[in-house]
Amino acid sequence: MPKSHICPTCLVELARIRAVPDPHYGLPVVVCPGCNAACVRTKHPDREFWRQYLRTNIAIRLVIGKFAMTLIMGLILWGFVVWAEDIFVDFRGNLHLVESFTALDINTALGSWGIVLFSFIMGYSIRIMYAHHRFWVPLVILVSVGAFFGTIDYSTSKLVELIALVGNFETTTDNITVNALLIRGKLLMLILIPILLGFLAVRVLSGSMRKSQSNKFRRVLKKQRKRRAYEK
């Protein structure tokens, strides 16, 4: 609720009227609808300073927090890819999806379903975090960060090899094959399915939540109306 602002001439409450900067001085002027008197909506400098400070502080914290969370989510996604590599892929590089989900070995089965569950939760979380964007923006961010972390060892080793070539010295790097990278890419695409389901869940659940909130608001208003009628 806005802060009270009374017209000094006719005592009408002006809080709900929007203050428009006047063309001469740029002051936030409110014209009273009762008496047409113009009065300036002054803001207390102490309050404004702290309000501005808190807003900036919250904004900076949000930026840093979301940035850090995105990086962490990318790392987690990379962890899921490694985990899935361990569970779904055999030593020849073949994928065994159905066998892994229906395996009698409890570790393999739990691991497979765990990846699905946690990916779903991750998709749900990141969609909420970037709720102000379109559907594809958080997906692109997540895939980019995940792919960055997924290929960081390969790209680093290639960079070191390039430096060794330019600097004319010999060095040993972990040789990651392109085939291994392709398997990782496939697994990343597979993990994106539960993540997308998480995105959809946000869409469904947020609609129902919004509905329940508006219903609650309506109930409160109805209650207040009844109380006022009873008081009169």
Binding site: R55, I58, A59, V63, K66, F67, A131, H132, V137
Partner: peptide, 15 residues
């Protein structure tokens, strides 16, 4: 870019 991606339009004003 980071602010644009991270914050909704209303919160961007302070930055």
């Amino acid at each position: 870019f980071v602010v644009l991606v991270s914050l909704p339009p209303r919160s961007r004003v302070s930055l």
